[in-house]
Design a protein around this nucleic acid. Structure first.
Lengths: 335, 335
DNA sequence: TTGTACGCGTTATCAA
DNA sequence: TTGATAACGCGTACAA
């Protein structure tokens, strides 16, 4: 079933049929109705391969998601999907492993799917430095700033990770804590982890908390890794009274580890997370956390990408606000 | 940059270039090397639109995911992705809203992406009855049995929902509970919900628990809806001692609601969930739940779909084992 | 082993 | 307002 069959069936030419199917003007009412009738009757769909071949363009936006069990990413993804659905773009999601090279993947995607733009949900700066050259379509990196990378077709949308982490530490210190552990991503692999770590250091310095008092254990952002990291932290520094986890899932894993040692949250150890996933406020105690604004992040990302696709200006780097959600998992240190 | 340019540049014909690029035999070593050199040098990629237009097929498998915040789905999806990655199929994920018609969406996808097969992660029987006719590619419905639908190109992979729910109720009854509430999906919209409900009824009858003692409140499968459903349940039946929630997220929402009423889990109210998401065992108390085997579900689904695409046999309907994970959220009823 | 030439289904151009 | 026809880039008979 092709556009030609519709033409023959309806008594018009292929051009007219094409016009109707693409909602173009310069078609008589009558022709439009007759043709649409046939189209509906035969349940005809344009062949998008032929269409794209002709138009020299893949009508779609690819999303490369780094790590599939990130609940913040899920929330952002959902919002992206619904925002993009309204625009008529096809939305192509590709998950890559946390250790994979998302930029290599992007090259593959460009060759294969010819997207009009690419969104990276998470990403490693090294991979971009090494391989982003040569990617021709507009891109936006989400949850990791690409400002210093300086590519003209790579925008970014982020939370101010350093400042946000600083606020988290501020909060703990204001509650009287000085022996604070940090559970984090791998600073060398993850830009957000590096920024958050930098924020911690800044805060510790401000309060003259010696560097050796800030106990940092790297871990992947997952329940099980958070658990393991917390165990190591407790082994090495049994005197800590508070923990800042660089992701909510890490915090949840950590809380389980704390309890499995017979300690309580927050009475024995206060915990502050990062991300602000919905689940956090269903836990007991409710998770105190730095809440990133996933909705805003998604919206700004789509806006930036669509503008870039439309040819409006070059790369932009936006920072969306966060706020500290004061839950129940962190409390004042009893003297 | 086309295959013709590569041909000219390398001094061979387009056919030879095409053969090399598709790994076909009947090409001399020398030609292969020379051509590959040019391909690498110019970073050439085949135009997949032209390729698919010619081959009359989109090389890919589409997945229609119903509801994006289903953590079980996320886990299955991840596994599907990695299984399919090994096969070289492009993996196209499409999220649809819980209220949307996934079969309509499948039609759109067929017209647009021309996939070789479709996987439905969640789905409504009514939609299939009404609209599946006319979908020509092999499909597999995951987490909902399509046996009774009888389409020759629609396989399915499920847990035995009815039996699993029956086991959940069995467990609660064996702990001494008789006043058991049920928090569930909409029985009329969700086949798994209907099956699980049927299992509950069967168990209640077996124990001669009057139907009016089984207090059922329908709700969507989400944290917030689980919370609201539990509130309604407590309003109507303050004397219940146990709750079976048809999804873990519902259970987690319910637990929050119970606690917000000043009651304890499991001392005042026992809770049993369904799905067995990883998170459950990080909670306090650890969630007692019916654990579906997401890995096996993903693996069987891929197997079934690939076999069907390969033309091996018709529709098959597989049931994968589950098991009751005995956590801490359900306890013996104190006399 | 290699090359020529045609057709896949659509849109764009141009003429009617 | 309409229609004939030439591309788009690839795979593949078929010929050499």
């Amino acid at each position: 079933m092709t556009i030609r069959d519709i033409a023959r069936e309806s008594g018009y030419g292929v051009t007219t049929v094409s016009r109707v199917l693409n909602g173009q003007p310069n078609v008589s009412r009558e022709a439009r109705e007759k043709i649409m009738e046939v189209v509906r009757r035969t349940d005809f769909h344009l062949n998008s391969n032929a269409k794209r071949l002709k138009q020299q363009t893949g009508t779609g936006i690819a999303v490369v998601v780094k790590g599939s069990k990130n609940m913040l990413f899920s929330a952002i993804l959902e919002r992206l999907q619904s925002l993009l659905a309204e625009t008529g773009y096809v939305f192509m999601i590709n998950y890559v492993d946390e250790g994979a090279d998302e930029v290599m993947e992007a090259h593959r995607i460009c060759g294969e799917l010819r997207p009009k733009g690419i969104m990276f949900l998470g990403g490693n700066h090294e991979n971009f430095k090494r391989g982003f050259e040569g990617i021709g379509v507009p891109c936006v990196l989400i949850t990791s700033s690409a400002k210093e990378l300086g590519f003209p077709n790579l925008s970014s949308v982020t939370t101010d990770d350093a400042f946000a982490a600083e606020c988290a530490i501020d909060h703990l210190v204001s509650l009287g804590h000085r022996n604070i552990g940090v559970l984090g991503g791998y600073v060398e692999n993850s830009y957000p982890a590096a920024r958050r770590y930098a924020g911690c250091v800044r805060a510790f310095e401000r309060y003259s908390i010696p560097a050796d008092r800030s106990r940092v254990v790297a871990s992947k952002f997952s329940l099980t890794d958070g658990y393991a990291a917390m165990e190591r932290l407790l082994d090495k520094y049994p005197d800590i009274t508070a923990v800042f986890a660089m992701a909510d899932v890490t915090a949840i894993g950590a809380i389980r580890a704390i309890r499995d040692r017979g300690l309580r949250v927050p009475e024995d150890i206060s915990v502050v997370g990062f991300d602000g996933i919905e689940l956090g406020s269903y836990l007991t105690p409710k998770l105190t956390t730095v809440r990133q604004d996933g909705e805003a992040i998604a919206e700004r990302s789509v806006r930036l990408l669509l503008d870039a696709i439309g040819g409006e200006g070059g790369a932009a780097h936006e920072v969306v606000p966060f706020r500290l959600f004061d839950g129940e998992s962190a409390m004042r240190l009893e003297a």
